[in-house]
Amino acid sequence: MIIGLEHYLFISAILFSLGLFGVLTRRNAVSILMGIELILNAANLNFVAFSRFVTIGISGQLFAVFVIILAAAEAAVALAIILALYQNIKSVSVDEADAMKG
């Protein structure tokens, strides 16, 4: 079987689902961040795969570049938030950050 678009899409779908699962269930804020990175990688893989097989251009790769840039910015800010959270409640467990509880 020739390795085609569907293969990449499947890998990407698995990565996405795993990332989503991590975001939904992990308790540690840093782990949630890792889940988000997995999701972003899944999206990137899709961009590049479509760019190779469907549009035959390079714009998909450029989108991936921008996603990486934003992921870097997002990671920096998210970690700053986690550190600020840690300073305030002495924990990185998202279960304890529930000041909005009704």
């Binding site: 975001v23 998202v94 279960d95 529930d98 509880k101 009704g102």
Partner: peptide
């Protein structure tokens, strides 16, 4: 009863959205 849905946990909200 409605109050209980406001857990303040972002993951609950996310799960509901999903």
């Amino acid at each position: 009863v409605l109050r209980k849905t406001q857990t303040g946990r972002i993951q609950n909200y996310l799960l509901i959205a999903i």
